[in-house]
Design a protein around this nucleic acid. Structure first.
Lengths: 322, 322
DNA sequence: CAGGGGTGTCGAAGCGCTTCGACGATGAAC
DNA sequence: GTTCATCGTCGAAGCGCTTCGACACCCCTG
């Protein structure tokens, strides 16, 4: 390669990295040779010499109570964003747990790591702290000390839904949440949404109940709510796969939207009437997470938690009550 | 590391790789040092010296007409299987197209690649041929010359469903398929399923129609079938996300399962009554694909297409007609 | 016109492994 | 008691990059 362009290897390196100034004529000559030879630097050699692999790891959850399409949107947006920063993405699954992190860190395979689906008391967090590997969490654990986290402000999202309904005169609202297992392992986003819901409900003085739910138990949950809460007029669903079975179950014995005013937190489900929702900005989260990670890799950026402001899109599934 | 164990670096390497015999005592001493120091070989150095990265690339589709949970199951099973072969997985998206393949191959980042969601006339296939990078396709293109492919035998799956219904006395069957866009870009599995359906229907002498479908158009499709095919008693759905809206639409104006005998090709949808189905063995496919790729990387294994025999699980959603 | 500060390029060292040939030691064969 | 394999280990030579001085060379200043 260097010979083909008539320069030394170091000059090629400097052309590629831009770390020293190179004359325009030499630069052009080198670029032409790169083009002509289809030259690609050897990734291993590069990472050995520069102590940078230009790869980041992404730890994706694979629990079955995690909503898969959302996880996939995250993954894709992370890959796309990483590519714009000239990085590739190594896919790790929860299967290996903390050991996977140790392995990729220890062998210098990756420059940093993005961890999704963080729990309040996550086993990976102490490992991350001990590893001095740049990392960004999508999700917020209980103790964020020294960590860089980013997430939707789920607490605000819960409150936003309550306010939306309360503003429209609703005084009896139910929150249908994630499957029980999600709360049991104290997943951050689920806890925070619920907390936001509850404190907003108290603040607005509305009657509020809350129930976990999964697609299998949706009919049951709807039945119980209809029975125990005859005055119910507002519904907040923080569980996308359950939205369809839930609304179906309600409509069999009771009101349909917008009389049962419904707000969904999460991505809008396909093949259903459009519902008013607080959308999960997966693409933005993924992109921002990568940006934060790149800063940390470059030695910039301080630890801290970024919460994205939620936005509510009114699609007409909530009615105004006098 | 080598010093800590009191041996030369090459001895450590041979202990780790097993490429030369090392005495039991030395092996033990080295392993103890590895343990004590938490030693991890530098991946870049290793790939530079050995010309092996121990990483494979996985190209995942991100079209919105691809069923995401299935793609995710593939991805996870590929990662899991790769780990058992001491490899990691680099995630590539369709976004970069053939260039992504060239990049990871040229820079020796990966030892091989697994490509999902292959079309009959896929742009990546010629690139793969030109690259002399070991590869395995999950899916089957039109021209498989020189390629290693693996997939469910979708043609047999289509036929299996027809036979199942025909055996139970059904003589008027509809096939509800993938969204039109999937056929337009000539995705292998969709074409082959349809072909299997049609030839089996001809062989069994049953009346057969076929329609593309998406969750949005499910109600429409159901309506059209009810209108145009009053004698319809059998339904084959090769489109998991549409199953729920489809059956709902049918039940509003017509028969429900098992009177409308329904067979699904794909993963069983959650939160619905259990349906008789031909399951997509994503885990097995992913695992086998990795196995095939590892053989190719090791210089074993010839090109060729492996089709997995489909199996039908009877869950009682098909009735016998006299 | 000597001295000083940029620029643009090169050479060499080294990143941390693997691998090949070599070599001493050991035991078997004659 | 030689001779020969065989076994276990080592040393050295890379793998293909990056990076750090060094060094021409040029232009500016005084």
């Amino acid at each position: 390669m260097a010979r083909h362009a008539g320069v030394s290897p170091s000059t090629v390196s400097y052309v590629l990295s831009g770390k020293r100034s190179i004359s325009e004529s030499t630069t052009r000559r080198v670029r032409e040779s790169i083009e002509a030879l289809g030259y690609q630097p050897h990734a291993g050699a590069r990472s050995l010499a520069s102590r940078r692999s230009n790869v980041i790891a992404l730890v994706v959850p694979l629990r079955d109570d995690v909503h898969v399409p959302v996880a996939m949107r995250f993954a894709v947006s992370v890959v796309t964003a990483a590519r714009t920063h000239d990085h590739d993405v190594l896919l790790l699954t929860q299967g290996e747990g903390p050991d996977g992190l140790r392995r990729v860190a220890g062998s210098a395979m990756v420059d940093g790591v993005i961890v999704m689906d963080v729990e309040a008391d996550d086993a990976r967090v102490p490992v991350l702290r001990s590893l001095d590997l740049p990392s960004v969490l999508i999700g917020v654990p209980e103790d964020t000390d020294g960590l860089t986290c980013i997430d939707l402000d789920f607490s605000a999202a819960g409150a936003l839904c309550v306010d939306h309904l309360a503003d429209r005169g609703h005084t009896d609202i139910a929150f249908v949440g994630q499957p029980p297992s999600v709360y049991q392992r104290r997943t951050g986003f689920a806890e925070r949404t619920l907390a936001g819901f509850e404190s907003a409900a108290a603040r607005r003085g509305v009657r509020a109940t809350q129930r976990p739910c999964s697609p299998e138990t949706a009919a049951e949950v709807a039945g119980a709510l209809l029975r125990e809460r005859p005055g119910l007029t507002g519904l907040i669903v923080h569980n996308e796969p359950s939205v369809a079975p839930l609304l179906e179950a309600f409509s069999e014995h009771g009101p349909t939207t917008p009389d049962l005013s419904t707000v969904v937190i999460g991505p809008a489900p396909a093949g259903l009437p459009e519902l008013t929702s607080v959308d999960l900005p997966a693409e933005e989260l993924g992109g921002r997470a990568v940006g934060l990670l790149m800063d940390k890799i470059d030695g910039l950026g301080k630890p801290g938690t970024t919460l994205l402001e939620p936005g509510l899109t009114d699609r007409g599934s909530t009615a105004r009550r006098s």
